[in-house]
């Protein structure tokens, strides 16, 4: 949650909303098991054997921390220029 606020930009309400979406979606995108997805998409002969995850679900919070650090480095005030504390 804290990550979301900082990513969006502290003091900017729109930033907080956007930050929340960015964090939540990237967590899910990176740790989602795409197996079902490929089962529907591909013919049966190509059905994937594994879960087709990029990263194990245990690393979910690591994703948000990495995004946080990257945002802090590139735009210390968040995506939407918030206050710098």
């Amino acid at each position: 949650m804290f990550a979301a606020a900082i990513v969006g930009g502290i003091g900017s309400p729109i930033g907080a909303v956007v930050g929340g979406f960015v964090i939540a979606f990237s967590e899910v995108i990176v740790t989602y098991a795409y197996k079902k997805f490929f089962i529907y998409l591909l013919p049966e002969s190509l059905e994937p054997s594994g879960l087709m995850q990029f990263l194990s679900t245990d690393y979910k919070f690591a994703v948000s921390f990495i995004i946080l650090v990257v945002v802090l480095l590139i735009r210390p005030t968040g995506i939407f220029k918030g206050q710098s504390i």
Binding site: F2, F65, P76
Partner: peptide
């Protein structure tokens, strides 16, 4: 992280230790 100011450094190191 050391380019960050003190409070951001605290958050970043906290996150990295969790990772």
């Amino acid at each position: 992280t050391l380019g960050l100011r003190s409070d951001y450094l605290a958050i970043a190191t906290l996150g990295i230790s969790e990772i």
